[in-house]
Write a protein that binds this DNA or RNA. Structure first.
Lengths: 195, 195
DNA sequence: CCTACCGATCGGTAGG
DNA sequence: CCTACCGATCGGTAGG
């Protein structure tokens, strides 16, 4: 039972914010989780909003790193997209608390921090849009695809996965990534006309 | 400036809950929106939780009605799925506050109400699963499709639409429904192998 | 629907 | 990290 670190507090805050929301979490709740008093948290951090910023910035950083890795390792639009999908799934499942807080609580951020996170998120989503646009240009994806809409569809699927997927369930994470990729790529590549 | 009805209060509560969350809404906030005092709300409803239940039950009812209509009007799995998609988009955009509260705040419901809503939601999602399973059986959709996973993907896309779609934007709602349907149906039907 | 409240809880601080 | 607080705000009530 040694003393807690700032790191411990942020991790605990992430878990609470992810499950109960920022407004649904009191400093006393958080203290209870950590085995200290709510007021003791102020020995480690400046306040509740600072905790939210720290958790969300971590979430954003994980996604950003995953996008950079996918871009660096992929070879061609389809390959990059596959890596983006797999990477996003890993972030959302390996860093559930930070990812969920980032995805759900950004609107509670004070204006300055919110703008900064919105910019990071824009950059990330643009990687999806550009990758899909590349695929349309090279002919890997169908010419009728609107990259902006398609990117939103893909991200909608990815951002929901932590809500229902269980690593101990009947399908493995790799199977999931393959299945999502298969579904999405068929959606992008086309085949028979559907309209 | 006549007196407000219970209906007015519930509509106002829906708007607040959808934008600020249940825990981010105080009875005084809600009163301000309605032009009365927070305490005056208790002349119309029993409490804050009762308001949440009312808003979410309305949201659930809209989705349920849309599913029934799609099933009744559709002819074959692909046709039913198209109607389910278009119907879901209409609910989410025509009843934004109720739909968003239903989709995002159900976890704050007290156990009894939560269980009831969870059952309703299960029933709704099962319509998607069964429609897709029918399509696999009839050969309309690819045999490799897992209906449970595919239904989740489709619903993930649909449940996010109110977050980014603007009726005054560059694409119309009908175009959106067509585009989502085209994307989803290609994903379900297959074409060339993607794995 | 307002006046006038209530006890409980909130985020946060001073001092150790 | 605790003790001992603070003012503000919360959901809610009695009485009109």
């Amino acid at each position: 039972m040694s003393r807690l670190t700032r790191e411990d507090i942020i991790v605990g805050a992430g878990r609470r914010f992810a499950t109960h929301g920022y407004h649904g979490t009191s400093m006393r709740d958080l203290g209870d989780d950590l085995g200290i008093l709510g007021s003791s948290i102020y020995a480690h951090v400046g306040g509740k909003q600072e905790l939210l910023v720290a958790v969300i910035e971590r979430g954003a950083a994980f996604f950003e790193a995953a996008a950079m890795a996918a871009r660096a390792q992929g070879d061609g639009p389809e390959s990059v997209l596959r890596l983006l999908v797999a990477g996003h799934i890993d972030v959302v499942l390996d860093h559930r608390a930070e990812a969920r807080t980032y995805l759900s609580e950004t609107h509670v951020l004070e204006p300055g921090a919110r703008a900064s996170i919105a910019a990071t998120r824009d950059r990330y989503e643009r990687v999806f849009v550009e990758t899909i646009a590349d695929g349309v240009d090279t002919g890997a994806f169908a010419p009728t695809i609107d990259p902006r809409l398609a990117a939103i569809y893909v991200l909608s699927v990815l951002n929901t996965i932590d809500r229902w997927f269980d690593d101990r369930g009947r399908i493995t994470r790799t199977d999931l990534a393959d299945d999502v990729n298969a579904f999405v790529l068929r959606g992008l590549v086309g085949g028979r006309e559907t309209n």
